Computed example of a mutant assay.
Amino acid sequence: MQQSPKYELIANELRKRITTGKYQPNELIPDQVALAEEFGVSRMTIKKAIDGLAMEGLLYTRRGDGTYVMGDISLKIEQNSPAEEHLGLTASFEEGRVTSKIIQFDIRFPSESLQKHLKLEKNEPIFEILRLRLLDGRPYVLEHTYMPQKLMPGLDEAVLMNSIYAYLKNTVNLKLSGAYRRIHALFADELDVKYLECKEGDPVLEVEQVSWLDDGTPFEYSFSRNKYDARSYNVLDIG
C-alpha cells in the first residue's frame, strides 16, 4: 500500500500535539525551519502541513510573526468537519471508529444531470452507491454517491466496507485534488428516518459535493446527509 504523503504524516503529528495539549491554545509553535529540521523535510512540505491545519481551524499564521495555535479549539469538537476537507470521512477519525453498511451498490447509465456533473457521455456507466457510515457503531452519515466506472473498474463491496478514498489513492493511484460543496438544510425523508434514527420532520444537513482529480476530471458526485445534531461544518476566515 502506498504510504501517505509526508505532509499528511506531519500534519497528523502536529494535530496530535495540539489536541493532547503539547501545543497550548495561543502558543507560538516552532517555526518552519525548526520543524523542517525536526522532520527531515523541506520547508515547502512543512508549509503544506500547516496550511492544512489552518483550514481545519487549528492553526493561524501572522505574517512576520509566526504560526499560532487557535485560541479556542473547544469549538473543534469531533463532530465538526472543515468545509474544505476532501480526504474522506475515515481519515477524519482514529482507525476503526468509522464502519460502513452497504444499502445499495449498482451499475447504471447516468441521467442527464449526472452526465453534466461527472462530464460523461450517456453510454458511460456509473456506480451508484448508498452507504450508511457509522461512528463508534452509531448512525452518523448517509452517503449517496455516483462515480464513473471507467476510473475505478475494480471497485467492489469489500472496498465499500472501508474507505473509498483510500482505495482510490493507494490502490488505483488516482491523485485526488479538491471538491466543491453546497451545504443546506432539509427535512428528514424516509431513508433518513430509517437509517439515521431521525423522526419525521427532523432537520437534516445535506452536503452536495463534486470532487475532482488533479487534472480536473470529476470522480464523484454525492449527497451526504446528517441528522441535525450529529455533525457540523466550519470555515475559518483570517484576515
Rank of each mutant, 00 (worst) to 15 (best):
S92W: 03
F93T: 02
E84Y: 10
T90H: 15
E94Q: 12
K101N: 09
E94K: 13
D106F: 05
N80H: 09
T99V: 04
E95Y: 10
Q104H: 08
E84F: 13
L87H: 13
K101I: 09
R97A: 04
L89N: 03
S81P: 00
R97L: 05
T90I: 12
H86T: 11
E84Q: 14
I77A: 11
I77E: 12
I103P: 05
A83E: 15
K101A: 10
P82Q: 02
S81L: 12
G96L: 01
A91L: 04
Q104L: 15
R97T: 04
L89P: 05
E84W: 10
L87Q: 13
N80T: 15
L89S: 02
I102W: 08
D106P: 01
I102R: 08
L89H: 06
I102D: 04
S92E: 13
Q79M: 10
T90D: 15
L89E: 11
A83R: 09
G88W: 03
T99D: 05
D106I: 06
T90W: 08
E94L: 13
E85S: 10
F105K: 05
E84A: 14
K101P: 01
S100L: 00
L89F: 13
K101C: 06
A83Y: 08
S100M: 07
E95D: 13
A83Q: 11
E94D: 09
L87W: 14
E95G: 02
Q79S: 12
I103C: 05
F105Q: 00
S81K: 14
G88N: 07
E78V: 09
S100C: 10
V98T: 03
S81C: 07
D106Q: 07
L89Y: 14
D106E: 14
L89W: 08
G96T: 03
T90K: 09
G88I: 09
E95F: 01
R97E: 07
T99Q: 11
T90Y: 12
K101R: 13
T99N: 08
K101T: 12
P82I: 01
N80K: 11
Q79G: 10
S81A: 12
E84P: 03
G96K: 05
P82V: 02
V98N: 03
E95P: 01
T99G: 03
S92H: 07
A91Q: 08
I103E: 07
F93R: 05
L87T: 13
F105M: 02
